[in-house]
Amino acid sequence: MTIYPAIDIKNGRAVRLLQGRADQETVYATNPAEVAATFKAAGSEWVHVVDLDGAFAGSPHNLAQIEAIVATGMKVQMGGGMRDRAKVMRALEIGVSRVVVGTRAAESESFVAELVAEFGQRIAVGIDAKAGKVAVKGWVDTTGVDAIEMAKRMDAIGVSTLIYTDIGTDGMLTGPNLAAQEEIAHAVTAHVIASGGVSKREDVVALAEIEKRRPNLDGVIVGKALYEKRVDLADLLHLRAG
């Protein structure tokens, strides 16, 4: 299971939002690249980066900070405002390893299919769910689209990586929605990365147990628990290796 430490960027700073709410912001660092460097020093190869300004506005606002993270030598999985081909291309050009499409994926399967045909495994789809329904535009709007049905459709058009976030648990440090994560992994053949709610080492252990049954649940994003020092990244990476 790949551990993806997370950096959410808003106004150039590394922050965390409670359940995605812009008015519930905690600033953890003024230089996101320095945070990434600590993740690399702990042994992480990947970092999951969200341009929150981009997610809310529909166009990336923090590419300079993301380029600086790329310069640390880490593989960057990045989302936030990736709503047309030009924006995806720009992210790939600055060295992002995998671009995450969320809002536009919920609106247009053909858009995703075209990206997958052109860029293959460098395209991931983020499915953010609130009570089982897909949320978009930085989680501001909830659609009537069923999250599992969307996952199946993305899987069918060849998306190799799905990131499933349970909004109800994100930033709450209450533990991930294990049942929902297993249900998504059971429904698709794509790789699934779990996101939302990790609060302690045991949460990652529990997801690793699901991986034994559903080998495609092979990644987990860890955010607030790292910043609040409830988990140690080097320990999680060692757990994964073991």
Rank of each mutant, 00 (worst) to 15 (best):
F111I: 08
G80L: 02
D235R: 04
G132K: 10
G196Y: 07
G80C: 09
T72A: 04
D141V: 10
T2P: 00
V198S: 12
K137F: 11
N177L: 01
G80F: 02
D128R: 02
A113T: 13
R98H: 06
V99Y: 07
Q65P: 00
H238Y: 06
R21Y: 08
M172C: 08
V198M: 12
G168Y: 03
D203C: 05
G144E: 13
D128K: 01
F39R: 00
G79D: 08
D53L: 03
E149K: 10
V99Q: 07
K200V: 06
L236H: 11
G223H: 11
N62Y: 03
A68G: 03
T143A: 09
Y164M: 13
D146K: 08
D51T: 02
V134L: 11
D141G: 00
A14K: 02
A64L: 11
R201H: 15
R83K: 13
N216P: 08
D23E: 15
E109T: 14
K200S: 14
F119R: 11
T174D: 11
V222A: 12
E93N: 13
G196T: 05
I210S: 13
S44Y: 00
G120M: 04
I221P: 03
A135P: 04
A117G: 12
E93S: 14
M78T: 06
K200L: 01
V35S: 06
Q77D: 15
A225P: 05
I123V: 13
D218K: 04
H238Q: 15
A124V: 07
F39H: 04
P60S: 04
F119I: 02
G126K: 06
L162N: 08
V49L: 01
T143S: 15
D203I: 01
V188M: 10
A42K: 10
K152E: 14
D51L: 00
R213I: 01
L239V: 06
I148V: 15
V125W: 09
L115D: 12
A135N: 10
K152D: 11
I3E: 09
G80E: 03
G158S: 12
L92C: 07
S59Q: 13
S108Q: 11
Q65S: 14
E211T: 15
Y28F: 14
G120T: 04
V88N: 05
S108R: 12
E228T: 12
K133T: 12
D128H: 06
G120N: 13
G43Y: 04
P176M: 05
A33D: 00
A55M: 10
A113G: 11
H48Q: 07
W46D: 01
R214N: 14
A129V: 08
I94P: 02
E25L: 13
A33I: 01
E107N: 10
A113E: 15
P5M: 06
M154P: 09
D128A: 02
V205T: 14
G95R: 00
Q77A: 03
A180K: 03
A71M: 00
A234N: 09
G102Y: 00
A147D: 06
E118W: 01
D166P: 04
L52T: 08
V159N: 09
G58L: 05
P215R: 11
E67P: 00
A113F: 07
G95H: 02
G73K: 04
D170N: 09
G73D: 05
G95T: 03
S97Q: 11
A36C: 07
G12I: 02
V125M: 12
D53G: 15
G158L: 08
D218R: 10
G219P: 04
A41Q: 14
